[in-house]
Amino acid sequence: MGKSFLQLVVILALVGAAGTAWNLLHRGDPEKYLAWSDPRYGPNATLNPDSEKIAPTEAVPSFKGDVKGEPSAAAPSSSAAPPAVKPSSEFQLIPLVDALKEYEAETLFIDARRTRDYEAGHITGALSMSAWEADLDDKVNKLAEEHVFEEPIVVYCSNSKECEDSKLVCGRLKARGFTGLMIYAGGFPEWSKEKKESITTGKEPGKRVGK
């Protein structure tokens, strides 16, 4: 057993050295670097059965100051009353029809997928904020300087009903103080089928049609 144990110790030492070196080598590359210990995947990231349910269209709260919940196109998003984020359901999942309304109201969209997926195609105007890349906190802090905390934000990923990237990003945004958080349930796959004209490729968000 002594020889096997010694071999195992040597392997583990190599693993420690190579893993550490590889990660440090990619410190400047958020697409490959991982923080050594990252609590972002902790309590906010647990599966919440309530958050899996897509809210029906009529139940979507208005962020335009309309108490009945019907979106008012006349009112700009910036004058919105802060929406109540229900703690039981954490973040509200919205269907395509509501995502389109928010898009037309020039609500900020955030793409929670990997940067390479964002560059391959994203909703025009959406900001890239990957849940799994090391610069997430920097991007959240930058957004906090530029965006009003109470304004609505729609987060999407590949398939928000199942994948949890949107929820992870929403968790970080909520922790930073943002309150108007919604998750577009269909995500990019659905949008790319229904709204092909509102897709941009490359690193830049792009400008929405009509802006």
């Binding site: 693993v15 990660n23 991982l34 210990s37």
Partner: peptide
């Protein structure tokens, strides 16, 4: 959904190298 959040990145950093060596 098994490991606590603090251990996920450590596992992702070192486990592939254990497989390699």
């Amino acid at each position: 959904k098994i490991l606590p959040g603090e251990l996920i990145n450590l596992c992702a950093i070192y486990l592939p190298w254990l497989e390699l060596f």
